[in-house]
Amino acid sequence: MSFDGLMWVEKYRPRKIDDLVNQDEVKERLKPLLENKRELPHLLFAGPPGSGKTTAAMIIARELLGEYYADSTLSLNASDERGIDIVRERIKKFASYLDRNESIPFRLVILDEADETTSDAQTALRRIMEETSRHTRFILICNYSTNIIEPIQSRCAIFRFKKIGQREVVARLERIAKDEGVRAGPGVLEAVAAACDGDLRQGINLLQAASAGGGEVTIEKVNAATGRTAKERATEIVRLAMGGDFGSARLKLVEFTRVYGIPESDFLRFANEEIAKGEGEEAARAIRVLAEYDYRLAVGANPEVQLTALLAELAALHKRGGKA
């Protein structure tokens, strides 16, 4: 079976603008633009993860380029290749190549997670967008448009994708479950939707993982599947440290970053979510400690040293009973 048939996120990825979930405003504005293809501006999609940005870009690429989709699109993910070289080498080369193919309006560069690029790279990108605008269009995708430099924002039509609501996530999961012949007990799809918090991509992955092995999908299976996520692992590390067990917390942290290769920034994000749930003086101090080390991580030389020091501080905080 092909990858696209295997993973439900691909199998059920919308193929038409109309099928995007819960993005009425985006759809309304996109459709007229697509009717006049040769006038299409550069596009900037901003919005939370799993809200349909990449999907929308893929749909547009197919509508514009049809059978030339594969050859005339350059898809890059900036968080994997974020330096200025990627802009200078690959994007520039691709964008400047004048296509003699009259049946397509222009070539297309889709840059996912564009907010991960350095500002140097964005500055270089801005030039390329101008110089090649006769035959190349850009779709930039990011979580926050504020992380994109102003001059680029001003060259793009900006589309803001909304976080998908619980109800829409459940409805979508229901349809997938029906098509796949998967039975889900009462409240199960709601639990999946609650766990993925508006990120439909995660929700679909979670549903598929929970339904592995056949039989009815239960809350227990959903919990078992979420128990292995990076967020759960990070939460466990924070709990160990804040319970005073520095040694175990640190070993788990090493596993988290060095075996599973999950970025340190993700650890801090999940740690913040976990600690912020707490109340009282200890949680307040822990948040301050976290903020301090988040900053040090950005400036420091070695993430391992900084995160280890963070865990040591959290463990000591516990021993002091939350007092400074």
Binding site: M7, V9, A78, D80, D112, Q202, N205, Y260
Partner: peptide, 26 residues
């Protein structure tokens, strides 16, 4: 995986792979 699923390697590691590993028990 990231290339096929239109996401980044780091996002795949922190978000998708835990589910994929679970699915691989089949």
């Amino acid at each position: 995986y990231a290339r096929r699923a239109h996401t980044s390697g780091s996002a795949a590691r922190s978000q998708d792979l835990p589910y994929v590993f679970a699915l691989c028990s089949g």
